[in-house]
Simulated assay, not measured.
Amino acid sequence: MKPQSWLRRNWLWAAGGAFLTIHLATWLMQTAMKRSVRSEAVNKQSAAED
């Protein structure tokens, strides 16, 4: 009997880890973009007031 590969033994952990990694990365990117847009809006508003 051949020894099973690591991926075949732990496919659920690998899939779960990939899922969480992708969602964490997209959440971080989304948060960074929201923060960037907010700061840009504040800069435009303060420039308009001057």
Rank of each mutant, 00 (worst) to 15 (best):
L28G: 11
Q30P: 00
W13M: 11
S46G: 00
Q30C: 02
V42Q: 09
S5Q: 07
L7D: 14
L20H: 09
W6P: 10
A25Y: 03
Q30Y: 11
Q45I: 02
W27G: 12
R9I: 12
N43K: 04
W6Y: 15
V37F: 02
L7G: 06
A48L: 12
V42M: 05
S46T: 01
V37H: 07
M29D: 06
N43A: 10
W6A: 14
H23R: 03
M1C: 12
G16E: 01
L20T: 11
L24M: 03
L28E: 08
N10L: 10
A32E: 06
N10K: 07
W6R: 11
Q4D: 04
Q45R: 14
S5H: 08
T26E: 08
T21G: 13
K34T: 01
L28Y: 07
S5D: 02
S5C: 11
R38N: 13
N10E: 06
D50N: 06
A25P: 00
K2C: 03
S46V: 14
G16V: 01
W6V: 05
M29Q: 07
I22F: 11
Q45A: 06
E49W: 04
V42L: 06
F19L: 15
V37T: 13
A18R: 02
W13L: 14
M29Y: 02
D50R: 10
S39T: 07
T21P: 00
T21L: 15
A15G: 04
V42I: 10
M29A: 14
E40I: 03
S39R: 13
V37D: 09
M33I: 13
T26W: 09
N10P: 08
T31E: 00
